[in-house]
């Protein structure tokens, strides 16, 4: 008797515990997503109103050169910026974990602080630093009589954006990796020491393999972050309007379509396609990593 009630109460307890999450998930995530999907099937014209167009918006979007350029640009950004950022984060995490760095707490906080700076503030600050006339780099170059670097020109812009994003997120990724390093059992290090492994060998053969799940996590976060690049280009647009156009990144394009061109339906379709790209790239990243792990 008592066994049965315990079992049935356990059966209701599970869903009850999940309910708060599910409710918010449906209300704040699935419902808007469904509404966006619904919107993407229509077309609204200033003259003529709203009509159902089926998948026409998607057909237009996959052929839209502005969207394709935007996606290719963030893909380039991902390929350049993410390796630099993750390698830096990894080096910092290993250095801090090695116990060889003096003032480890201060250094750790120092690297992490940029993440606490809102990306809007960070972009404004870097926008000032990049300034071709009055920015400190320009002033320094003038004082030293060397050519002023044009951080905001079309050739440098992607690199300048990558620098801002790296500055912002190295600390965040470092903390994830550092936490994973602290979770490695000390017995492993002792065993390695007994086997005669030095600091480098320990890092290579013990720490790195143990970090793989954490690295995968940071990599997938970075895929999403890179492909959704928005704040930084949106703010630097004011400083370099001729370089950053309304379709500079795919996300910026979706925003411009919705709020400048008032093409909300088409913007919804573009957003969905961008989401699809992110899912595919994330899945590809996970798939290659898993395949390597099980040879």
């Amino acid at each position: 008797m008592s066994v049965i009630t315990a079992r049935s109460s356990r059966r209701t307890a599970g869903p009850l515990f999940v309910a708060p999450f599910l409710l918010l998930f449906v209300l704040l995530f699935l419902a808007p997503l469904g509404y966006a999907a619904y919107l993407s099937l229509f077309e609204h014209k200033l003259i003529g109103g709203t009509t159902f167009v089926g998948l026409d918006n998607y057909v237009t979007a996959v052929k839209d050169p502005q969207l394709i350029h935007g996606v290719l640009r963030v893909a380039t950004f991902f390929l350049i910026q993410v390796p630099v950022m993750l390698v830096l984060a990894l080096l910092f995490a290993l250095a801090l974990d090695s116990g060889l760095v003096r003032l480890a707490r201060v250094v750790r906080l120092g690297i992490f602080v940029p993440y606490a700076v809102p990306s809007v503030v960070a972009s404004l600050m870097w926008g000032y630093l990049y300034g071709p006339d009055y920015g400190p780099f320009a002033q320094l170059s003038k004082a030293l009589h060397v050519p002023v670097p044009h951080f905001l020109s079309s050739g440098w812009m992607l690199g300048s954006l990558a620098n801002i994003v790296t500055w912002e997120f190295v600390g965040y990724n470092m903390i994830i990796l550092y936490a994973a390093l602290r979770a490695i059992p000390h017995e492993l290090y002792e065993a390695a020491a007994v086997d005669g492994a030095g600091a480098w060998r320990t890092a290579w053969s013990i720490k790195l393999p143990a970090l793989r799940p954490a690295l995968m996590l940071t990599l997938v976060f970075s895929v999403i972050g890179s492909f959704q690049l928005f704040n930084e280009p949106n703010l630097l647009q004011r400083l370099a309007p001729a370089v950053i156009d309304s379709a500079y990144t795919a996300n910026l394009y979706a925003y411009s379509l919705a709020f400048i061109s008032q093409q909300i339906n088409y913007a919804a379709a573009v957003s969905f396609l961008l989401g699809l790209v992110i899912v595919i790239v994330s899945y590809a990243v996970l798939l290659t990593a898993n395949r390597r792990r099980t040879p």
């Binding site: 926008g127 300034g131 071709p132 006339d133 009055y134 920015g135 004011r238 400083l239 370099a240 309007p241």
Partner: peptide, 8 residues
Amino acid sequence: IEPDFTDP
């Protein structure tokens, strides 16, 4: 030909 209403 620089943008207006910016810090520079």
